[in-house]
Simulated scan of single mutants.
Amino acid sequence: MSTVQVAAKRVAQAVETAWQAYLRGEVATQTRGQTLPHTMHQFVMVELPAKVADPQAWPAIAREMRIFLNMLGVVAS
């Protein structure tokens, strides 16, 4: 397993833990509704694993993860 795949797996585990806490009401957000948090969860749990499987997609993944982190800042602020 590559370093990128290991990192993606760790991110997915952290996001899944956060998502479950969010669903239990343990995580407050600055956004209304579940649209943005749900989209972020879908990206990490569905789209990211598919992209990580293709090493040619790794540069794009780095850019998308920066966007994801910016979105996280918006949701958490």
Rank of each mutant, 00 (worst) to 15 (best):
M1C: 12
S2T: 14
V4I: 08
Q5S: 13
Q5I: 04
V6N: 07
A8M: 04
A8K: 06
A8I: 09
K9A: 12
K9F: 14
K9R: 01
K9Y: 10
K9W: 08
V11P: 05
V11Y: 14
A12P: 00
Q13P: 04
E16V: 01
E16C: 09
T17W: 05
W19H: 07
W19K: 01
A21M: 09
Y22Q: 02
L23F: 00
L23H: 07
R24A: 11
G25H: 04
E26T: 06
V27P: 10
A28T: 12
A28D: 14
T29L: 14
T31S: 08
G33Y: 05
Q34H: 10
T35D: 15
L36S: 08
L36T: 13
H38T: 00
T39P: 02
M40K: 00
H41P: 00
F43M: 01
F43H: 02
F43P: 01
V44H: 04
V44N: 08
V44C: 10
V44K: 03
M45H: 01
V46E: 15
E47I: 00
L48D: 03
L48Y: 02
P49S: 06
K51A: 15
D54S: 11
P59D: 02
A60I: 03
A62F: 08
R66E: 15
R66L: 11
I67T: 12
I67M: 13
F68R: 02
F68Q: 00
N70C: 08
N70W: 02
N70I: 03
N70A: 15
L72D: 03
G73L: 02
G73S: 04
V75E: 02
V75T: 08
V75Q: 10
A76C: 10
A76K: 07
A76T: 11
A76S: 14
S77G: 15
S77A: 13
